[in-house]
Structures are given as C-alpha cells and as structure tokens.
C-alpha cells in the first residue's frame, strides 16, 4: 500500500468528521483566563486598601490581603508554568502517550507562583510528572491530574 492510496482512503471520512475539524475550537473554561483577572483584582484590592484609611484604626498592609488570595494549583516544569485544568479528562489507560519527565522536588506557598523547574505551589513533592502533548500530567495519590501550559518563562527573556 502507498501513502497516496491511504490519502485517497482518508478522503472517504464521514462528512461530520470533516466539518468538525475546521470548526473553531471551543475554548475550555480554564484557569488560563481566570488567573490574569484574579491577579488584577488582587492588585486593585491591595491598592485600594493601601489608599483608604483602615476602618478599625488598626494597621493594614496590602501584603496580608495579597497572601490571602490563593493562586490555582500550578507546577513549573522546565521554563513552562502549568495550571491545573478545570475540566479533567480521563487519563487512566492513556499511559502509553505519557513521556516521563521527573518528579516534583520543591514547593512554594499556595499564594505564590512556582518559578523553578519541578516546583509546585501545592503538596506534590515526590509526584511523578509526564508530558502529554503540549500539557503535563501529574500523578498524585494514584490519580492523573492534567495541567495546562499557562505561561513560558522564556517569554520574559
């Protein structure tokens, strides 16, 4: 059989499959969109609190408010920052698609953003990390959690 023949055979795919492929991708509800919004809101809150006199007359500094603002679970692998996907697909049984990368070795506070490779802002130390296409999968307590690429630190350079 030749590649040409297989290409011709592909031409007989169902209409629905053909149409679906060129339809705009529905964007998943994702932390990717919420993180910048949450960050802006936190910043505005801090600025407002710093500008306004405290109601109870006590000391108020912006930092205490910023720390209260929890970030979503994130993991840094290589130069990529990944955030947990809000819609978790079933990943059990797809292990042959995983590429093992290593284990989470350090963590930062849950309000912070991990910046070093194999660092998380959650209790994931020792969890195995795999690549799955452009995303990563973290194995935690026997479950696979999908994290989507949020940001590339190399973009800062």
């Amino acid at each position: 059989m030749t590649g040409e023949y297989l290409f011709e055979i592909m031409g007989e795919l169902d209409d629905d499959t053909v149409i679906e492929a060129r339809e705009p991708v529905k964007r998943q509800r994702s932390w990717r969109l919420l993180v910048p919004i949450a960050a802006c809101l936190a910043l505005i809150t801090v600025l407002v609190m710093r500008a306004a006199p405290p109601m109870d007359g006590g000391a108020l500094d912006g930092e205490s408010y910023a720390v209260d603002c929890e970030a979503p679970p994130m993991v840094c692998v290589g130069r990529g920052l990944y955030s947990i996907a809000t819609e978790q697909p079933e990943l059990a049984g797809r292990e042959d698609e995983f590429e093992y990368l290593g284990e989470i070795t350090s963590r930062v506070d849950s309000a912070e953003q991990p910046r070093e490779s194999f660092q998380a802002n959650d209790d994931l130390i020792g969890s195995r990390v795999y690549r799955l296409d452009e995303d990563i999968v973290v194995e935690y307590e026997g479950k696979y959690l999908l994290y989507e690429l949020l940001y590339n630190y190399k973009d800062e350079e």
Partner: peptide, 10 residues
C-alpha cells in the same frame, strides 16, 4: 508522513 504507515508497495 502517511508513507510511514504503509509498506510503499502497490
């Protein structure tokens, strides 16, 4: 790319 899936013979 598709040729990688097949033998290349008719």
């Amino acid at each position: 790319e598709l040729s990688e899936c097949v033998s290349g013979t008719v």
